[in-house]
Nucleic acid binder design. Structure first.
Lengths: 225, 225
DNA sequence: ACCTGAACACCGTTCAAGT
DNA sequence: ACCTGAACACCGTTCAAGT
């Protein structure tokens, strides 16, 4: 009888990470405590410190776990197409896992999965004709930009959204607030109230991605753009 | 004797915000507790809830206080020059106040000072020839990008930097780590180790700003760029 | 109108002690 | 090698009670 039924398997760092991911999905980053993660794996809080130096390190593991589900887009078409897809996939990834943007943005942990993604991006950028220095900077820019965007996107509009209010309603309310401003001191906010509160984040993101890609394109000789 | 010496002046929301700013500078965002802010103004923690709904609201006030010290650049030269300056000033602002990027990024609180900045930016963008929709999007892009960048910039490199280690040493160590990777699976990371660990954040930022401005420029007819 | 005491339900982390 | 009990020094927030 090789399998012993009544002893739980030894707690691994990986099991810990998976448990933390579940707690995160359930209670969000604010509700993610060492005590809850411990309970999730059926152990007391103090035990976690045998496997992990502190909460920071657990969050580092969590960051890499999030990155693990990233899938590079197919290597077809021009560099522009490929990095367009890269940006969209990265955003999707961050949006799909609760509070992922907040977790990832805080720390620059070069986990193994992130390294793989960087390697892949650099390879494509160099193949597209970017210089070594430009390629290195470009990966940085793309990462910072998408993270910054999603962070804004996910942040509750000043404690209002927390309630059941829909995105649409909030946008409308924001628009009303802009329109209600004194038109002599804020003429542009009043005039552009609709444009400023465009609630379709996909449209907004597409606009921003195109700008960044345009900016990178100027680094290449005209015929390679 | 119009001034009464032994009674402290009534506690205002503004005094509270200033106290919070001091605690923030001293102990960082992690060390910013309601109890410490209360102590800073010479009052008990429970008293704060008379002036402020909760900690979130105090953080909203803090966000606006940070924005209050933003100064729009002179209205000279082309739009590109002006927004180049805008980006650099915004980054400076976030770097100068401890953990400012973390505070600002979490929330989308449209405090009065942020409104003023938006109004000013929109005015310049429209004057430069951007369409209403493009101008609205551009302010969003610039904000998200700079915040994303500084957030990366300020984040400790995975719990290492917390110690006295210098930026230069960390970059060197990171470079060594890249070079130590297996060259057959990570050829690009190995080859670009130096470029990837360029520690001069000013250079990095300048590169990124130029890309974003280039991207926005493509929205204008060629003669207005 | 503004502040306090006291309590509630939590935190992260350490460390001697158990098995 | 791995886990626990118990403690330490904290949290945010509420609420009856004070002035």
């Amino acid at each position: 009888m090789p399998e012993n039924d009544d002893t739980t398997p030894p707690l691994t760092r990986d099991a810990l990470t998976q448990a933390a991911l579940r707690v995160l999905e359930r209670d969000g980053l604010d509700g993610l405590s060492m005590r809850k993660v411990a309970a999730e794996v059926g152990v007391k809080a103090a035990s976690l410190y045998w496997h992990v130096r502190n909460k920071q390190e657990l969050l580092d593991l969590l960051t890499d776990a999030v990155m693990a589900s990233a899938e590079p887009p197919p290597r077809e078409g021009g560099w522009r197409e490929q990095f367009h897809a890269y940006c969209w996939r990265y955003r999707r990834l961050l949006l799909d896992k609760r509070d992922a943007a907040k977790i990832v943005s805080g720390r620059l942990s070069p986990g193994p999965h992130l390294l793989g993604l960087m390697e892949d991006q650099l390879d494509r950028l160099r193949a597209a004709g970017f210089s070594d220095a430009d390629a290195a900077m470009a990966t940085y820019l793309l990462g910072a930009f998408v993270q910054g965007f999603v962070l804004q996107e996910q942040s509750p509009i000043s404690a209002a959204e927390v309630l059941g209010t829909s995105r649409r309603d909030i946008a409308d309310a924001a628009g009303d607030r802009f329109r209600a401003l004194p038109a002599d001191t804020f003429p542009n906010l009043v005039a552009l109230a609709d444009d400023l509160t465009e609630p379709d984040m996909d449209t907004r993101f597409e606009f921003c991605v195109q700008r960044v890609l345009d900016g990178l394109a100027t680094l290449l000789p005209a015929e390679q753009r």
